[in-house]
Computed example of a mutant assay.
Amino acid sequence: MNAPAAAALAAPQPTLSLIGVPNCGKTALFNRLTGSRQKVANYPGVTVERKEGRLVGPRTGRTFRVIDLPGAYSLEPATLDEAIARDVVLGRHATEPAPDLLVCVVDATNLRLNLRLVLELKRLGKPIIVALNMSDLAAQRGYTLDRAALERALGVPVVPTVAVRSGGERALVDAIDTHGFATETAARVQRLEPPPVASAADIEATQREVRRVLHEAGYRVPARLAVLSRLDAVVLNPSAGPALLAIVLFLMFQAVFSWARAPQNIINTGVQGMNAWLSGVLTPGP
């Protein structure tokens, strides 16, 4: 074994935690990073799945410990999955060390929903890389986004990834491999306090910050999808949705039992006229 390889093996293994909202492609990216070098179990005392793997840096030869955290929309947990993800990120979990680096996976086709978690993680002051996943799908569907502008607006590295394509993780691997871990590894034992419960004013401020970031990044949703999103907001509204359903059912009832009479009369008159015409044209049978 040569000296660089021996030094890489002897060096402490930095811990990376992948975090993101559900269905952002986080687990697919985890599988792409770790390949077969992973093990699956449950967190102690609960049925929440815990996934751990290993990533070897292609440049440094260093081995990284990679944890796939449960999906979470926010650091204010509403489910057990979110509570575990929050505790691991804050270094407060009983069996999991605090991560040296957070990799926040975001869905490029639904960036508005994902940015709230990114901003909450950024406020913790921990090292973070944003993995802009599904970048190819966003481009195919007509989304516009300036990745460099998004990086400047957030103040953290943003790298494009395509978790379902071979090589789609290469930019993220390079960013991880070249990240400086000296000070983070020394501060691994640090425990952070959970963020206070957000008030209505805090939530509104976060939404304003999300809009600012999207504006500076030039994020644009395709017109067709924007219209469909507005329609969904109306149809799925707890008040407007049932009212629209009642109107549609009423119109269907009217169409079947009232408005159908005129077409029925026209059809019956036509059939009777055709019958009378055929009776006059055709000779009587035997």
Rank of each mutant, 00 (worst) to 15 (best):
G20R: 03
S36Y: 07
N31W: 04
D81H: 11
Q140A: 14
R59N: 09
P14S: 10
D68H: 06
G167V: 11
K39Y: 11
I128Q: 12
E209P: 01
R147V: 15
T95S: 15
P194Y: 04
V162T: 08
V118N: 03
A8R: 04
L249W: 11
Y73C: 04
E52P: 00
Y73R: 03
I128W: 05
L244I: 08
L228E: 12
L245A: 14
S74L: 05
A201V: 09
M252V: 14
N2S: 15
K51A: 08
T178S: 14
V88F: 06
Q264C: 14
R92Q: 10
P242F: 03
E76Y: 04
N265A: 15
A201H: 08
I19V: 12
A153H: 02
G241A: 08
V197L: 13
L18P: 00
K26L: 00
V213M: 01
E193A: 14
R224F: 00
A6P: 07
T15N: 07
S199T: 13
G35Y: 04
L119A: 01
I128D: 00
M134D: 02
S258L: 15
R188H: 11
Q190H: 11
S135D: 15
L150H: 08
Q272D: 13
M274G: 15
A85N: 09
G71V: 05
D87E: 14
V66M: 00
A171G: 03
E82P: 01
L113S: 15
W277V: 14
Y73E: 01
W277R: 13
R152M: 01
A131K: 02
Q38E: 03
V118P: 03
S279K: 09
R212M: 09
S199N: 06
Q13H: 12
G180F: 07
A186D: 09
R230G: 09
T206D: 15
M1L: 12
M134G: 07
N23H: 07
S229M: 07
L119P: 01
F181D: 05
V105R: 06
T269W: 15
I19G: 01
